[in-house]
Computed example of a mutant assay.
Amino acid sequence: MPRTSRRNLLFGTAAVSAGALLTACTSNEPRNAAPGTDDAVGNAPADDKPGAPVTIGFAGPQADHGWLNAINENAKRRAEKYSEVTLEITEGSNDTAAQIGQIQTLINKKVDVLVILPADGKALTQVGLQAMKAGIPVINLDRVFASPQAYRCWIGGDNYGMGLNAGRYIGEQLKDKPGAKVVELAGLDNLELTKQRTQGFDDALKNYPNITKVARQAAEFTVESGQAKMAQLLQAQQRFDALWNHDDDQGVGALRAIQQAGRDDFLMVGGAGAKSAMDAIKAGDGVLKATVLYPPTMAASAIDLARALGQKKGVGGMSELEIPASITLYSAVVTKENVDEYLPTGFN
């Protein structure tokens, strides 16, 4: 998952998918999909009309996490919508050297456009530069390269915004409760994204002087770590009013620990937008009341952008002839009131 820069444009709102931001990469008349249909996952293609043939190389990390797997699936499904698009997809790897080799293979194949979600943005900057120098435009997906010269367009999520909106939601729920206490189950602390999510959360809570964050525990974005670290939090904190968990995958484990402890005296907010979390929110019979999106549909939008680049077209709905240099997606809060709108984008 991502490292996000605050300099990126905060672009649009999170509708049914990230693809909604691009409503028509090559057309001014977007096609809307009904919720629950195939097109609702990753939203409708930007333009059904076939254009010039485009070969898109897609290189992502190993899909060893629900969100990462959803990234790959969104890219594949979007490419299948376009008869003129050929998708050359790599196996995916969390090993930097292996992913560099995979991308160099795509460069040697002379694909028209590259979409890259780097395992490590800084470490893969040079191969991004290599592609750009070879005349292959790069869509840098989520984890940003160290140099803007390594990509033509960056599209990704807003980690600071995730924390900010989680904090605002919890703040509004607890604003009338004197001496309210909250705890935080973070992700990997050595990742910049985790620090950004925590910073956003802390900044939001500054607006609610009645609320104090009494504990924070870092997990590892896995079910097992979520369960273990949540159990520690529950043991250490006999009373609190809200929990923000950074990641819905580790949230599965956190919910197991909560159930085993027999606790239901607080509300929980998740992160990312897993289907399991949305199902629990819709059921409304547990502590999980909301999740803050980090939309994997950004991969579908990256394919739209790559297709537009390959066909030398801009983004419909915008006056400019070229696609933007960067797009930061909005971190919407999914609650019982709006879950049906977002449920089609939930990932396993």
Rank of each mutant, 00 (worst) to 15 (best):
M132I: 02
L124S: 03
L129T: 07
Q149H: 14
P45L: 02
L321V: 11
R168W: 04
G314N: 12
P118W: 09
E341K: 12
V115I: 09
Q149L: 15
N28A: 12
M278K: 06
N338F: 09
G128L: 01
Q232W: 06
R197F: 04
T96D: 12
G156C: 01
F201L: 08
R168D: 10
N165C: 06
N69A: 14
G66H: 09
Q311E: 15
V334K: 02
G101F: 08
S276H: 07
F11N: 13
I139A: 00
T291W: 07
R7W: 11
A300I: 01
G317M: 07
G317Y: 11
V252Q: 14
F58W: 07
Y208E: 06
A204N: 10
R31M: 13
L305W: 00
E224A: 07
D264R: 13
A261E: 03
K206S: 06
K289M: 09
T37H: 05
R3N: 13
S276R: 10
D48Y: 14
A146M: 02
T4E: 11
A79P: 06
R77L: 11
A325L: 07
L129A: 05
L188C: 03
D47T: 06
G167S: 14
L329G: 04
R256F: 08
K213W: 08
I107H: 01
N74Q: 09
D248W: 11
Q149N: 15
M318E: 04
G57V: 01
Q235D: 06
L193K: 11
T13A: 13
G262H: 01
T335E: 08
G316W: 04
A302G: 00
K81S: 06
A40E: 02
S331H: 03
I107S: 00
I155V: 12
S301I: 00
R7L: 10
K282F: 09
A131W: 00
S27F: 00
M1A: 04
P53A: 14
A59H: 08
L343S: 08
G317R: 04
A180D: 07
G171R: 13
A33F: 04
I211R: 05
T194Y: 04
V252R: 12
D279Q: 09
D47I: 00
Q217L: 07
N245L: 05
S93C: 10
L114C: 02
